[in-house]
């Protein structure tokens, strides 16, 4: 049994799942649009949450937020479920598939057999859509893969109940009801405003523009505080969050630039084109940061000077992003 579902690749898994699910119900939105309306753009550096034993730096919102916000802003009703019992989680999934409903779900990538070994760390915020069951194998649309994949019952159960930082606990979600008409324009405005607000005004220094500055200040101290080796590993982890699978380049900054460009047309606001160009520049600067960082953690030659230089770059990026969002927060229809 297989639902007639179209698999499309995307830069980021959650955008991809959301976009593919909406397409199934006849709403066509590009990946940048999904990302922008869902206010996916963010920055956080959280020393108290650990991944591979190091602080988590993230360039986007919590997993699940994009889907939640996009559907809410378009007036789409969704159902989400979380399970304690693994068999129940699988039974629920089978039930939905029998009804012909494609189901999005959160999985861990470590045990995902079709994933390249290179990417298989204990990372638990990957999204896939399951849209069929043929014999014992579930048919899976993973936006990161170019082709449709399949998983056995046990394999799927294992990834749905992966353990570690932020365990997925069998979380699944699907669309319950679509309104007769969706208002994309107002959804865009809400999406942009939320991003601007989160980037500018969260009063905790770990998030938004302040988060970038926070990371810069901490980075300066890494070589002295952690030693050369650990500093290098921490830096490499930031680069992986920035560039590893699913950011579309430069930690989502290019996707957001694409979104602003599309908005300029949809909303008839040419000034957004200017901001899109600036955002592209910011993305390019993040890439320069990555190049310098890679040189730094690979050779470890100049030590403190390179960390100072990297921190200065981050400060500069923070200032540029701040300017963009100060303008964006005033957007209106």
């Amino acid at each position: 049994m297989k639902i007639d579902f179209q698999h499309n690749v995307a830069a980021h898994c959650e955008n991809g799942v959301t976009s593919n699910l909406l397409k199934f119900y006849g709403i066509n939105l590009s990946e940048p649009m999904i990302f922008g309306i869902g206010s996916g753009y963010f920055f956080s550096h959280m020393p108290f949450i650990k991944l591979n034993g190091m602080a988590v730096t993230s360039f986007r919102v919590w997993p699940g937020m994009i889907f939640k916000r996009v559907t809410r802003r378009l007036g789409i009703r969704v159902k989400r479920k979380k399970f304690r019992n693994q068999e129940n989680a699988m039974r629920e999934l089978d039930k939905m598939l029998d009804k012909g409903i494609p189901v999005g779900m959160l999985v861990g990538v470590y045990q995902l057999p079709y994933f390249p070994r290179e990417y298989r760390f204990h990372f638990n915020a990957h999204n896939i859509t399951v849209f069929g069951k043929e014999g014992d194998r579930y048919v899976v649309s993973d936006p990161v893969m170019e082709n449709v994949e399949t998983l056995s019952y046990d394999e799927l159960k294992k990834v749905r109940f992966a353990k570690g930082t932020y365990p997925p606990s069998g979380r699944m979600y699907y669309i319950a009801e679509i309104p007769a008409e969706v208002n994309v324009k107002s959804a865009i405005i809400k999406g942009i405003r939320k991003t601007a607000k989160d980037m500018l005004t969260i009063p905790v220094p770990m998030f938004g523009i302040d988060g970038i500055r926070f990371l810069a200040r901490r980075m300066r101290k890494w070589p002295a505080k952690l030693g050369e080796k650990s500093a290098a590993l921490n830096l490499a982890q930031v680069i992986r969050m920035l560039e590893e699978i699913g950011t579309g380049g430069a930690g989502f900054r290019f996707i957001y630039a694409a979104f602003l460009q599309e908005c300029a047309e949809v909303l008839q606001k040419p000034w957004l084109n200017e901001l899109s160009r600036e955002m592209t520049g910011i993305g390019d600067q993040w890439r320069e940061f990555a190049i310098l960082a890679a040189r730094c953690f690979k050779n470890r030659d100049k030590g403190q000077t390179s960390y100072d230089q990297l921190a200065d770059m981050l400060m500069n990026i923070a200032q540029r992003e701040e300017k963009v969002f100060l303008q964006l927060q005033t957007i209106d229809l």
Partner: peptide, 26 residues
């Protein structure tokens, strides 16, 4: 990986990337 980049007219489009050295090194 899907990457977003500007075409020659300055419009964003998505394209596929084989990988990037700094990222591979990380």
């Amino acid at each position: 990986d899907v990457c977003y980049a500007l075409d020659k007219d300055g419009h964003y489009t998505s394209t596929l990337s084989m990988g990037w050295k700094p990222k591979n090194e990380a």
